Amino acid sequence: MGGVAGDRLVDSEAAAAQSESGDAHGARGVQKKVAEVVAEEAARHPDTPVEAFATDEHRIGLKPVTRRVWAPVGERPIAHGHHRFEWLYVTAFVSPATGESFWYVSNGVSKPFFEALLRLFAEEAGAGSERRIVLTLDNAGWHSEASLAVPDGLRLVFQPAYTPEVQPAETLWTLVDEPVVNKHIPTLEALEEIISARCAALASEREKIRGQAGFHWWPKIANPR
Rank of each mutant, 00 (worst) to 15 (best):
R67N: 05
W173F: 09
G126I: 12
R225D: 14
V4P: 15
A79T: 03
E130A: 07
V50W: 03
H45L: 13
R8M: 02
V34Q: 00
G6V: 14
I194Y: 01
A5V: 05
N182V: 12
A79W: 06
E13L: 13
P77Q: 11
T48A: 08
R8S: 09
G141A: 13
W217H: 04
Q167C: 05
L154P: 07
G29R: 06
P151Y: 11
F121D: 00
F102R: 13
E189T: 11
N182D: 09
A161N: 13
V65R: 12
N182H: 11
A161M: 08
F158D: 08
D23Q: 07
A35P: 14
G211W: 06
W173H: 09
A35R: 14
L62D: 06
S19H: 06
E145W: 05
R131E: 02
P224M: 14
T174F: 08
W103F: 08
L148D: 02
D56F: 00
R119L: 09
K208C: 05
Y104G: 02
A122K: 04
V181M: 07
G214L: 12
A201Q: 15
W87E: 12
A201P: 00
H184K: 14
G22D: 11
R155Q: 04
H45N: 15
P96D: 04
S147K: 12
A127H: 04
G74Y: 04
K220I: 03
M1H: 05
H82Q: 13
E40M: 11
H82R: 08
I78G: 02
A14L: 15
P49M: 15
I133Y: 00
A35Q: 15
L62P: 13
S106R: 15
R59Y: 11
G214K: 05
G108V: 05
W103S: 02
A71E: 13
L148I: 06
E41Y: 07
W218P: 01
V73E: 12
E178W: 03
E178V: 09
R8C: 02
R67G: 00
E192W: 03
A24I: 00
D56P: 00
E193F: 01
A5N: 15
A140P: 10
G74W: 00
E193R: 13
K220P: 03
A14R: 12
R59W: 07
A146F: 07
E178A: 14
H184I: 10
T91W: 03
G126L: 12
R67I: 08
L191G: 09
R132M: 15
I60E: 03
E189H: 13
G74H: 04
R84S: 15
L118W: 02
E40L: 06
L154R: 12
L172E: 06
P112R: 05
T187K: 02
V94Q: 01
P186D: 12
H25C: 12
H83V: 07
T91S: 06
G3H: 10
